[in-house]
Design a protein around this nucleic acid. Structure first.
Lengths: 210, 210
DNA sequence: GTCTATAGAACGATAGAC
DNA sequence: GTCTATCGTTCTATAGAC
């Protein structure tokens, strides 16, 4: 029997690094995440990071991209479906934001992705900032187009302002789970997190519709 | 004539360190701000930071506190004045948030304080997080009490959720000036910043009132 | 593909002269 | 109060054995 320990180990090592890096980056940010802590938590050798990902930046790029690409694909899939459903009629604001926000939180129970996304949006390091533009610029333009159609009474600048505020609310609320826990005095159970998403969507839609 | 070069130099050195540290912390965050860069930009000796502030943490504590204390005092002053004006009657939601948000942005033209505050709220370092609790916990409780009075139809948890979202919007929007500039394609002039504040207050109030 | 060992640079902090 | 000089630590990244 031919065994392939290298390949299967490689996958395990690579995946364990990704898992550890995601958790640490999400909670500490780019600068404070050290490769020593990542490899220690993943129980792999320090040099493995450079072998598999080339550099610390390469690792973080992979961590963020691996999570955000499927989320953004799901967002656009839902938006396209709404587009098909409503045809020429404008899509209701709530449904547009549903398609933007639900996919972001749907994996929250099985990962810390929301926190990761929030960190990606708020991390001060120039490297992470450049990724933010790469992953969200086109998406933002598409959503603003759709919102403009659903809000013919608003001028372009107002749509931009309110979309900026809507995204700020979304980002701010997923970024700061600790502030949320301070407010409520304990860890959030999944039921409370669902409630956060419901409140978030209706909060944003109300601000946008006025 | 008796000169006191030490004292006047001390003040200059101390102040120059604070100014440089504020600018760098606001843009880069705690971890990425190095004392070498701060002292180089302030044109003072590296050792001066430890003489005047004890440590990097001590410096950042001073930077944040020096800005946030007067802002919070002004917020509570305005809130108390509203309280006196309205007596037993509930204060309108918009005015409550005016008192929370305007003082945050009023010094925006003459400093980068909004960005500093956003960084304080979002920085992942545990040290900065502890300051966040120190400076904003009591304030949050006071504002939630006032909002509860103005929203007797909402239960306590809903007030908490929406206050959390309102603060998220405020923090997210001041934190990420670069995202705002990406959206509008250029630096924001003061007139646009005023517009941001107006939109922000009405956006939050709409989300809270529904 | 994974390891040890280490290069090379940057960091916060401090001791001690002035 | 300010300076020079430096300690001890930590970091990313890499070279080279296995």
């Amino acid at each position: 029997m031919i065994t392939r320990p290298q390949i299967s180990n490689a996958k395990n090592t690579r995946q364990r690094i990704l898992t550890a890096a995601e958790q640490i980056f999400a909670t500490k940010g780019f600068q404070a995440m050290t490769l020593r802590e990542v490899t220690q938590q993943a129980k792999v050798n320090l040099a493995a990071v450079n072998y598999h990902f080339g550099s610390k930046s390469g690792l973080v790029r992979e961590v963020i991209g691996a999570r955000i690409r499927p989320i953004n694909a799901e967002r656009l899939r839902q938006l396209d479906q709404l587009k098909a459903e409503y045809g020429q009629a404008p899509i209701p604001i709530e449904l547009i934001f549903e398609s933007l926000i639900r996919p972001l939180f749907q994996y929250a129970a099985e990962s810390n992705f929301p926190q990761l996304a929030g960190r990606t949006m708020s991390d001060p390091s120039t490297f992470v900032r450049s990724m933010h533009k790469e992953f969200f610029m086109d998406l933002s333009i598409r959503y603003m187009q759709e919102l403009q159609i659903s809000c013919p009474h608003l001028d372009t600048d107002t749509v931009k302002f309110r979309f900026f505020l809507a995204v700020s609310t979304m980002v701010g609320s997923i970024m700061d789970q600790i502030r949320l826990e301070n407010l409520f005095g304990s860890k959030l159970d999944p039921a409370k997190l669902d409630r956060v998403v419901d409140e978030l969507i209706s909060f944003i839609a109300a601000g946008f519709k006025q």
